[in-house]
């Protein structure tokens, strides 16, 4: 690992050099919520002053840039009884992500496991993922995030460079050759022992700021044991089956596929659209049978996939603890509360 430090004004320089040649996605403020707090989103940025490096969290994850809500898997030209299939992975240039937090970087690492590193890797994702340059940025823990419990409070890989604010200057961890070369454009220096001490102090301070925790010990077993628990029914009764939790989740990737004929009847397209396991038709099959007819079945399933199925396959859960789903849920259903209640349900009986 290679580390450097640089003066704060150098970051603007770096941004401007990169922005002159590349499309950059970064956190910007898009408005205020009803309590007057800023609302952030990942968007195209060309002016460094628009980038909100001290952002809390974005409402939506960056996933629309690599798992768009809707994209064509293929298009067809129809000719009498036959057709020609054309495939595009829907990406034509690299993207720079400027200021991703560790949770969102870890979300990408988790998606990589299933979408890149398992059987039948997905080219639509791979093509976009291979064209990302990621500048990570440390975050300010929020009351709803429990990333530390999920082991996602720091990112070990999955970025090109990662910036930590030491107060007076920036500390940067460099993981890729590309990042190393980019940094040659600005003034950086070898960190000294005092920088190391300061870095560790900053990290320790941040570690103490995480307030929300969730106990995941033995969770895979507990989810199996408490599969029939009444607690699921209670959460199911609250859930609106709206699917918001999945759309704001940086790790939810489930989808459906639809085909349509173009209006001129000469073409057709096959379109992939992100779905949510909380939506009623998720597991409905021909003949009208629904494998998960109740809201509690579907809600339970979302937890079961993230904290049981994915763990079985990849030794880690499919949740980075960003807290977005809980913050956006109109029924106030939060991951820590659901998991706590499942753990508790055995004890009360």
């Amino acid at each position: 690992m290679i580390f450097r430090t640089f003066e704060k004004q150098e970051l603007k320089k770096l941004f401007e050099i990169l922005a002159a040649h590349n499309r950059i996605i970064g956190p910007v403020e898009t408005g205020r919520d009803r309590d007057g707090r800023p609302v952030y989103a990942f968007a195209d940025v060309t002016d460094y002053d628009d980038v909100e490096l001290k952002y809390s969290i974005t409402k939506l994850p960056a996933k629309r840039f690599f798992l768009p809500f809707k994209e064509d898997l293929s298009t067809f030209r129809i000719e009498n009884d036959t057709w020609q299939k054309e495939i595009s992975y829907n990406v034509d240039r690299p993207l720079i992500f400027f200021g991703l937090h560790p949770c969102d970087i870890n979300a990408l690492n988790k998606l990589d496991k299933v979408l890149l590193h398992s059987v039948y890797p997905m080219p639509y994702y791979a093509a976009k993922r291979e064209n990302m340059f990621i500048v990570g940025m440390d975050c300010i823990p929020q009351p709803y995030c429990f990333c530390r419990s999920m082991g996602s409070d720091t990112a070990l890989h999955g970025f090109d460079m990662f910036i930590t604010d030491l107060g007076s200057r920036y500390f940067v961890e460099i993981l890729s050759n590309t990042a190393f070369n980019f940094l040659k454009n600005i003034k950086t220096s070898e960190p000294g022992e005092d920088d190391h001490v300061l870095y560790m102090k900053v990290v320790a301070k941040r570690n103490n700021e995480f307030t929300r925790h969730v106990d995941t010990t033995d969770l895979t077993k507990i989810l199996d044991m408490e599969f029939q628990s009444e607690v699921w029914k209670e959460w199911g009764d609250k859930c609106l089956s709206c699917g918001t939790c999945s759309s704001v989740c940086p790790t939810c990737y489930c989808y459906g596929v639809d085909e349509t004929v173009d209006i001129d009847l000469k073409g057709a397209r096959k379109t992939k659209m992100l779905h949510s396991c909380n939506l009623i038709d998720f597991a409905e099959v021909a003949g009208g049978h629904n494998f998960r007819p109740g809201r509690e079945n579907r809600l339970k399933y979302r937890y079961y996939h993230k904290h049981r199925g994915f763990v079985e396959a990849f030794e880690e859960s499919l949740c980075v603890g960003c807290g977005r789903c809980g913050e956006s849920c109109l029924a106030d259903i939060t991951v820590p509360e659901v998991i706590d209640s499942i753990r508790g349900s055995g004890r009360n009986k």
Partner: peptide
Amino acid sequence: LERRMHCGMGKCCRCNVGSTYTCL
């Protein structure tokens, strides 16, 4: 087993059964 399937390759998750995929 029959489940809803939109990809057949362990990606869309529609066919999930228990902790695994029906299609894989």
